[in-house]
């Protein structure tokens, strides 16, 4: 069991390492170092800057040193909680991000919850009633959900809300709460707004998960242990509900680890379309304005969040599947 946990954790750290290198590369890639980019921008906007300041910055980040050393310095700062400064906003990155990170996490996790709540019951129904009308409808909707990029779904829903409900489905807060400090009422307002992004983000994953659940349950339904369960006098419903459904949950749980990165990933685009106060819009604007320090930090944070999510889903899988707990897999 511990070997499994250790292995998954090591893989997570390794993933994070890869993401950090890419983030660093993104910061480094634009021609010239970011200080000169920043200075050029500052000069453009009319702000006076001293060469001293530039030299100080360069020395601080070791920009005159070997690239590996630079990465080390950057990583060391990140590990101490210093994500650097956004040159566009003239503020520390963490301040720019503010409560966008927790909101991003909230949106992604709610999308995952929505996915599971929708997909598992429908998948089970589809498998138990194979080839019924409901099964065919579920299969068709699943395909449609899979084929619709989530940001298009967001666009269409926005338009539908605007046209028929005459409300704006965008954002996570009503206007009066958008800049207000946190309160119970604001939290309630958040919960009212949460379903739309959760549904938009969760649909594609749900479609995928319905297919996974259905296929696995269909396989498990044919296993001899189901016959054993029926042969000992269990009703059909309980024989299927207790055994194959439970066994089929293992591959479903392990596919959550694959779904989660997609949700975090998709959230970036969807939050731009739905103008959510999450990481996505900031990432996009930072990229468009070449504020690479901010962008790199956001990519790293999103990566860390994803890795954490995948690791937690690994733990959930271990809890679900005794074969992993007992070191058989």
């Amino acid at each position: 069991m511990w070997a499994y946990i250790l292995r998954r954790a090591a893989l997570g750290v390794l993933t994070l390492f890869v993401i950090s290198i890419i983030s660093f590369a993104i910061i480094q890639l634009p021609p010239g170092d970011f200080v000169s980019t920043a200075l050029a921008e500052l000069a453009e906007s009319g702000t006076e800057t001293a060469d001293e300041f530039a030299a100080q910055l360069r020395a601080e980040y070791g920009l005159d040193r070997h690239i590996v050393v630079q990465y080390g310095i950057w990583m060391g700062r990140v590990l101490q909680g210093d994500l650097g400064t956004s040159f566009f906003h003239q503020k520390p990155v963490l301040e720019v991000i503010g409560d966008r990170l927790p909101l991003s996490m909230l949106v992604s996790v709610s999308a995952l919850v929505f996915t599971l709540l929708i997909a598992i019951p429908i998948g089970i129904y589809s498998a138990v009633r194979q080839y019924s009308a409901g099964d065919h409808i579920a299969t068709f909707l699943g395909f449609l959900g899979l084929a619709t990029p989530n940001f298009l779904l967001a666009l269409v829903m926005l338009y539908a809300g605007f046209l028929w409900l005459d409300v704006s489905l965008a954002g996570l807060f009503s206007v009066e709460y958008a800049t207000a400090p946190w309160s119970l009422a604001k939290l309630g307002d958040l919960l009212v707004h949460l379903p739309i992004p959760a549904i938009v983000l969760g649909t594609a994953g749900a479609a995928q998960l319905i297919r996974i659940t259905r296929a696995n349950l269909l396989d498990e339904k044919r296993q001899p242990y189901v016959t054993t369960a029926r042969a000992k006098g269990l009703s059909n419903r309980r024989a299927i509900g207790k055994y194959p459904v439970r066994v089929a949950m293992n591959p479903v749980a392990s596919s959550v680890g694959l779904l989660f990165p997609n949700i975090v990933s998709g959230a970036v685009i969807v939050s731009v379309v739905l103008s959510l106060p999450t990481m996505g819009p900031v990432l996009l604007s930072s990229l468009l304005s070449q504020d690479m320090y901010l962008a790199g930090a956001i990519i790293l944070l999103l990566g860390a969040f994803t890795v954490l999510g995948v690791f937690l889903s690994d733990l959930a899988l271990m809890w679900l599947d005794p074969r992993i707990r007992h070191g058989n897999l």
């Binding site: 893989l11 997570g12 993933t15 890869v18 993401i19 890419i22 983030s23 590369a25 993104i26 890639l29 680890g257 694959l258 989660f260 990165p261 997609n262 975090v264 990933s265 998709g266 970036v268 685009i269 990432l283 996009l284 990229l287 962008a295 790199g296 956001i298 990519i299 999103l302 990566g303 994803t306 890795v307 995948v310």
Partner: peptide
């Protein structure tokens, strides 16, 4: 287990 879209965007 990498969130791809942010990476694509960044690159």
């Amino acid at each position: 287990s990498v969130p791809v879209i942010p990476l694509w965007l960044g690159i």
